[in-house]
Amino acid sequence: MIGQRKDLLGLEDLMAEEIVSILDTARTFRDVLDRPIPKVPSLRGLTAANLFFEASTRTRLSFELAEKRLSADTVHFQTTGSSVSKGETLKDTARNIEAMGIHLVVIRHTAPGAPHYLARNLDAGVINAGDGTHEHPTQGLLDIYTMRERRGRIAGLRVAIIGDVTHSRVARSNIWGLTKLGASVTIAGPPTMIPAEVERFGVAVAKSVDEAIEGADVVNILRIQLERQRTILYPSLREYARVYGITSERLKRAKPDVTVMHPGPMNRGVEIAQDVADGEHSVILEQVTNGIAVRMAVLYLLAGHKAPGETAAETPAMEAKPTHGEPSLPPRR
């Protein structure tokens, strides 16, 4: 169960029940965000380090807010102007940070597997905030959370993921999470951006965007990632917009109350048309708000991990109550 995990590295590793337990916990934190004082003392005394070896605005801000809303102390680290530019290795950087008494590490890195490497080498909990083209689990979780809030369920949902699937860690985390929870996922995009044998992930590949959108409950539009492509995979942005861009005309093929999502930042007029981005179906800003709640849930659940050998101290009892029926609070010892 997630409460026994030290790290969150990807949705590939999680069981369906663990994903559901994160989503349920996130709902409580979503309520906290609407309070007059949107802050709880749960992680008081813990310190989180946000290590960003790759540019990020919203993910970094979202994690920082989540940590602060939980009363954790936060420290930040960016590659520019740090000792990484002086030649320090990832492991040494991390060990130094750990020597400063950090409990949770949030890491974004260009190299797939960098968070896994840290997780193996540190006692601190590690959260993957995006590793190259591999996974971005908290983005996947917040997408799934938003879908569940909007559509009321995940099992049986028809989700279309449109765009550059090959270079998208968001797509990979979405696919792992959604298929585990029983959604049916269809992907579409330029053939150069669809990974070979992607059907093995349990998704369908549509021949065209129109085919993928047909009857969809959710359309999740991926960003064209110019920075992650070494070669040009399509002739021009204008052609991409014409063949693969989501317009309100195209959206008519989906369910009438379709939910439109985008992980941001958007290339308006390329993968998503202006009127779709700001339209009635768009939940793009809702995703951003939900992201804080989902990250609070992940931080809260991982903070409960105890390293092997480190036993929970005997605590003075709160009201001792044996529980009957299904308990919602744990036994207070």
Partner: peptide
Amino acid sequence: DLQTIAHQPV
């Protein structure tokens, strides 16, 4: 007692 109990309560 969040820091001292075995894992995070629901």
